[in-house]
């Protein structure tokens, strides 16, 4: 084992996870492009390492959200039937889809994330309707809002549309080794119309299980290479803790801009790789 390479993997993961964590994005979206572009790691190995780090970040961040009663665990388990089914589909497709297409798809997701970063999330408009059947009433809940100083009740809307979007999020998560918050957040905000705090907490909670569905399969397949996945997972946990601390100091708008620039640069490189134009060598 090359100890220099291990340290590089660790350091890169700390950085990626700190940056991602500061804006509520999983580190996976940076890790796969960096490992393939600069570390000359095979894309399937990079995806395998990334998916483990996605689990680590999700599990590591879950506790405070749960204790603050922001996570809707019942809604999470219902939506997880869709995300894990999507992940399973992704596992089946991962071996068949050409590598060039994976690079292309990754570039698209990076650009979508950049666009989402620029558009600020507003609190979804409260639904003025209650025509939905009472079958899923157990999902409606409330959360304690510290700023308002009171309990805020909310309803879960359009569950079917939410489930379809979550299936897609699970599929993309498994194919690319990312948390796919980029698809989960619109699903939560636009389809289910949840308060932002609830959707962020619930999405983070679900990401771990979604990633575990594909990670289990990739582990059995031998796509999770210990020498790569180990330092990446550990670095991501350290970075996530550091990111939460730095968040208190740095201005959010400057960070957002930096984030968008990084996403676009990585997207361009992934696009070039997809069409076989190699700026930096992409395979070992």
């Amino acid at each position: 084992m090359d100890s220099g390479f291990t340290l590089w993997l660790f350091a890169v993961s700390v950085g990626a996870s700190a940056l991602g964590g500061m804006l509520g994005m999983a580190s996976g979206i940076f890790i796969v492009p960096i490992l393939t572009m600069f570390g000359h790691v095979d894309i399937h190995t990079a995806i395998g390492a990334s998916i483990v780090s996605v689990i680590a970040c999700s599990c590591g961040a879950a506790a405070p959200f749960l204790e603050g009663r922001l996570t809707n665990v019942r809604l999470a388990i219902v939506l997880e039937t869709a995300t894990t089914a999507g992940a399973l589909t992704g596992v089946l497709l991962a071996g068949i889809i050409p590598v060039a297409f994976l690079f292309f798809l990754f570039a698209v997701i990076l650009l979508l994330s950049a666009q989402q970063m620029l558009a600020k999330r507003g609190e979804p408009a409260a639904a003025s309707r209650s025509d939905e059947s009472g079958r899923w009433d157990a999902l409606h809940s409330s959360y304690p809002d510290r700023i308002l100083g009171r309990e805020v009740p909310y309803r879960v809307d359009r569950l079917r549309l939410g489930m379809i979007l979550m299936y897609g999020a699970g599929l993309i998560s498994a194919l690319l080794g990312i948390g796919s918050g980029v698809l989960k957040i619109p699903a939560m905000d636009t389809a289910l119309r949840l308060p932002i705090k609830v959707s962020s907490a619930t999405s983070n909670f679900m990401i771990g299980v979604t990633a575990a569905a594909s990670a289990g399969a990739y582990f059995m397949r031998g796509n999770i290479v210990t020498a790569v996945a180990g330092p990446v997972a550990l670095g991501s946990v350290v970075g996530a803790i550091a990111g939460a601390r730095i968040l208190m100091i740095v201005s959010n708008d400057k960070l957002r801009l930096l984030f968008v620039v990084v996403l676009i640069v990585l997207a361009i490189q992934m696009l070039l790789a997809a069409f076989g134009i190699q700026v930096v060598k992409t395979s070992a």
């Binding site: 095979d42 089946l92 071996g95 068949i96 569905a213 289990g216 582990f219 796509n223």
Partner: peptide
């Protein structure tokens, strides 16, 4: 059901070829 889907994924992983070098 969620546990069953994850377990099924593990079984699928054991029986399908890897996309990259194993």
């Amino acid at each position: 059901l969620v546990l069953a889907i994850i377990a099924f994924g593990v079984v699928v992983g054991m029986h399908t070829p890897s996309g990259g070098p194993a």
